[in-house]
């Protein structure tokens, strides 16, 4: 459905995208995951026909994003990272505006947007500028969907949004799978990767890996352990300096570590050392890596 081949894009000396390529299948919920400055927005804007690549090509539904931009603009829904609806129009007026532009009506496609729009409909007379973050997001998604697009391009819809609204937003995206809409969504939150069918991990304009979240996690090199002690700050300092520790990163109340030599004798030596250094209530357990563990490993 979406094919991206060897796309590069520079802004002056900064190379935002370096030979990026991957494919997204019809009906797939595809995540583009990476920190700010990784190149996510540049790629989204190329797909949305808003900027041109320096080299390489991309197509949506077999149409080229450069040559066939008119077709693409009529048949995709795009939600930019910055809230871009008309703040001085009401919620309903915004929706009506976008429906009219695309030659349709709210009534015609109401069924598609109903699960989302019905949540905010009681406030439809309220000006878009006066909505809360979560409501703005729901309205923007409704507007991007109102012409029943073949593909949705969502640029960081959950950035700066609290954990509750984020969860709700992903539930809405899952609902949309029923309508066979292809969705490409970017996010800096690694924990959202698990909610996608497949993801591309991106950093500094390079795609690090493209796969299902499960396969990415399975490809983690080495055995991962979670460890904690009463004084987690000291524990972190001690482990990082230890010669038998390959990597050590904080994850919530635990540290995630990989041993260089993973034999039980060598592990025991590390634990003895920690106890001798005054660490109390040490808990160690083997764990499965998550996407963030994998991302960190790919960055190293």
């Amino acid at each position: 459905m979406i094919t991206i081949t060897n796309i590069s894009k520079s802004y002056g000396k900064v190379q935002a995208l370096k030979n990026v390529g991957f494919e997204v299948s019809r009906g797939e919920l595809f995540g583009l995951i990476g920190p700010d400055g990784a190149g996510k927005t540049s790629l989204m804007r190329i797909l949305a026909t808003l900027i041109l690549p320096d080299s390489g090509s991309a197509s949506i539904a077999g149409r080229d994003v450069v040559k066939d931009y008119r077709y693409i603009r009529n048949n995709i829904g795009y939600m930019p990272g910055r809230f871009s609806l008309y703040q001085d129009l009401s919620m309903e007026e915004n929706l009506q505006f976008f429906a009219t532009i695309f030659g349709t009506t709210i009534k015609e496609n109401y069924e598609l947007i109903k699960p989302i729009y019905s949540q905010i409909e009681p406030f439809k007379k309220r000006k878009a500028g006066a909505l809360s973050g979560g409501m703005k997001q729901k309205l923007a998604l409704s507007c991007a969907l109102i012409h029943r697009p073949e593909a949705l391009i969502l640029d960081e819809p959950t950035t700066g949004v609290d954990a509750v609204s984020r969860t709700e937003f992903w539930e809405m995206l899952k609902e949309l799978k029923r309508y066979d809409i292809t969705i490409i969504v970017s996010t800096p939150y690694m924990d959202e990767a698990g909610l996608c069918d497949r993801v591309a991990l991106i950093q500094s304009g390079n795609i690090l890996q493209v796969d299902t979240p499960q396969n990415i996690v399975n490809s983690y090199k080495g055995k991962l352990y979670a460890i904690k002690a009463q004084d987690i700050y000291q524990l972190n300092n001690l482990l990082r300096q230890h010669t038998n520790i390959e990597s050590c990163f904080t994850f919530g109340e635990f540290l995630h570590i990989v041993f260089k030599n993973d034999s039980s004798e060598q592990q025991a030596i590390v634990l003895d050392y920690l106890e001798n250094q005054g660490m109390k209530n040490i808990v160690v357990q083997p764990i499965n890596p998550n996407i963030e563990d994998c991302f960190i490993q790919l960055l190293q």
């Binding site: 920190p35 950035t159 700066g160 800096p188 690694m190 700050y233 990163f249 904080t250 960190i296 960055l299």
Partner: peptide
């Protein structure tokens, strides 16, 4: 929100700085 959008390694380095500061 000091770490919004920051990559996972830098985010942790940032928290190292926070811990040092509190100490």
């Amino acid at each position: 929100e000091p770490t919004g959008g920051v990559d996972p390694i830098t985010r942790r380095q940032f928290w190292d700085l926070i811990y040092e500061t509190a100490n």
